[in-house]
């Protein structure tokens, strides 16, 4: 993300490249507020260049083997480590088969050059309202695992992101992985991004749909609409009802376009965003329902 600034150079900082998680945590403990974790650097470096943050210690985690983790366990789910890049996820067959919304978001995020460096966790930690990563993760009910020298904790991605450039992370802490719960075979999920005439999304949306005779579970998540990703809870409820699915979809889409908090910004007005919420919700849900 670049806002534009007069600077070409970076502010001064000390660069650390720990080999183990413990080492990284010790550095974070030591430098506290003065330190920043760097994964791909795709988000961090521009922010530093533009003097929006000026950490005096940058802790590069790319060489920490423990964080290069990408593992699926049946019944448990998928774990994505902190140094896993978008490109690595894109090539991971299981993602395409099972977690389609995340797969589509990963594929649509930026370009190859960025994807080769950018990590999914960096994407979440950056907490920029227009990014794609958090949207499908929230739809799957994913959690982040956070470690410090004396604590391990887990928190849902939905709570972890508190607002623009604001996350639930204290000095001394690091996000080690994201955990996606396992999902039933019958579940469907998908992601759409509207970015015609924009680098980032004016609106992105992920849906998770489990509609069987026995169980119904629906999640609709929207990004780029206000300060943080949001679920359309009322719209989800409509989809849980019995009845003609096509009619429910259209009702749910209208509801979503009304219930969410939406703002105007440089990319789009509130009105247009609400309209897009309606259209994209219908489109995504229709596609998912049609899929066999």
């Amino acid at each position: 993300m670049s806002f534009g600034s007069p600077y070409f150079t970076l502010p001064e900082f000390t660069y650390h490249k720990p080999k183990t998680l413990r080492e990284a945590l010790e550095l974070l403990e030591k430098y506290g507020d003065e330190a920043k974790v760097m994964a791909g650097g795709v988000g961090l470096i521009p922010f530093m260049k533009e003097r929006l943050i000026s950490p005096t210690h940058v802790i590069d985690i790319k060489e920490i083997a423990e964080l290069k983790k990408l593992e699926y366990k049946k019944g448990e789910g998928l774990t994505i480590g902190a140094t896993i890049t978008f490109s690595e996820l894109e090539k991971y067959q299981l993602l395409k088969e099972k977690y389609r919304a995340l797969y589509q978001a990963v594929k649509l995020a930026s370009d190859n050059i960025i994807r080769n460096r950018a990590t999914l966790i960096g994407n979440i930690c950056e907490a920029i309202p227009w990014v794609d990563g958090p949207i499908p993760l929230i739809a799957y009910g994913a959690e982040v695992e956070i470690k410090s020298l004396d604590e391990v904790r887990r928190t849902p991605v939905a709570d972890f992101i508190k607002g623009p450039v604001e996350i639930d992370l204290k000095p001394g802490e690091i996000v080690t992985s994201i955990h996606l719960p396992d999902i039933p075979e019958e579940a469907k999920s998908g992601f759409l991004k509207f970015n015609t005439g924009s680098e980032f999304a004016l609106l992105n949306i992920a849906a998770y749909l489990l509609i069987t005779a026995k169980k119904k579970d629906v999640r609709l998540v929207y990004g780029a609409i206000s300060s943080k990703p949001a679920r359309a809870l009322e719209a989800e409820k409509i989809l849980l009802r019995d009845g003609d699915l096509n009619a429910l979809i259209s009702m749910a889409a209208i509801k979503a376009s009304e219930e969410l908090e939406v703002i105007s910004d440089v990319l789009a007005s509130e009105d247009y965003r609400r309209h897009l919420i309606k259209i994209l919700t219908m489109k995504l849900l229709k596609e998912l329902v049609e899929e066999v």
Binding site: G4, G197, S198
Partner: peptide
Amino acid sequence: GLYEQIKFDERGWVVNPNFTNYY
């Protein structure tokens, strides 16, 4: 024709002096 526009805010600042938001 389709995309470009330098946008100003009410204080005369350019809102999109970058290729992220100036498409």
